[in-house]
Computed example of a mutant assay.
Amino acid sequence: MNQLFEGIRLKPILIIIIGTLIFGFGIIHFNLQNGLAHGGFTGITLLLYYLFTIEPSLSNLLLNIPLFLIGYKLFGRLMLMYSLIGTICLSASLRIFELYPVTELPLQDDMILVSIFAGVFVGTGLGMIFRAGGTTGGADILARLANKYFGMSIGRFMFSFDAVVITISLIHLSMTNAMYTLVTVFVAGRVIDFIIEGASAAKSTMIISSKTDELSKAIIEKMSRGSTVLTGKGSFTADERSVLYCVVNRNELIQLKKVIEEVDPYAFFSVNDVKEVSGEGFTFDNQKRPLKPTT
Score class of each variant (00 low, 15 high):
residue 194 F to W: 06
residue 131 R to F: 06
residue 72 Y to A: 07
residue 282 F to N: 04
residue 237 T to F: 08
residue 134 G to H: 01
residue 176 T to R: 05
residue 179 M to W: 01
residue 212 T to G: 06
residue 247 V to L: 01
residue 152 M to L: 14
residue 281 G to N: 06
residue 153 S to N: 09
residue 58 L to N: 03
residue 237 T to R: 05
residue 94 L to Q: 03
residue 285 D to S: 08
residue 257 K to D: 14
residue 178 A to C: 08
residue 202 A to E: 06
residue 50 Y to C: 03
residue 258 K to M: 10
residue 77 R to F: 08
residue 295 T to F: 02
residue 236 F to I: 13
residue 117 F to H: 04
residue 147 N to V: 08
residue 244 L to D: 05
residue 60 N to P: 12
residue 55 E to Y: 07
residue 53 T to I: 10
residue 166 I to R: 00
residue 193 D to C: 04
residue 7 G to Q: 09
residue 86 G to D: 08
residue 130 F to Y: 14
residue 102 V to F: 04
residue 103 T to Q: 11
residue 87 T to F: 01
residue 189 G to A: 08
residue 45 T to C: 05
residue 181 T to A: 09
residue 182 L to W: 11
residue 177 N to T: 08
residue 248 V to D: 02
residue 133 G to M: 07
residue 225 R to I: 09
residue 107 L to I: 12
residue 28 I to D: 00
residue 213 D to M: 11
residue 36 L to T: 13
residue 74 L to W: 01
residue 32 L to Y: 11
residue 115 S to R: 00
residue 286 N to D: 15
residue 93 S to C: 11
residue 288 K to A: 12
residue 206 M to Y: 10
residue 260 I to R: 03
residue 4 L to H: 10
residue 52 F to Q: 11
residue 107 L to P: 12
residue 197 E to I: 08
residue 94 L to T: 12
residue 279 G to F: 00
residue 67 L to H: 10
residue 102 V to A: 05
residue 183 V to K: 07
residue 69 L to E: 10
residue 182 L to A: 10
residue 133 G to P: 12
residue 74 L to Y: 08
residue 195 I to K: 00
residue 42 T to S: 12
residue 265 P to K: 02
residue 146 A to W: 11
residue 283 T to Q: 10
residue 79 M to T: 14
residue 75 F to Y: 12
residue 269 F to Y: 15
residue 222 K to A: 05
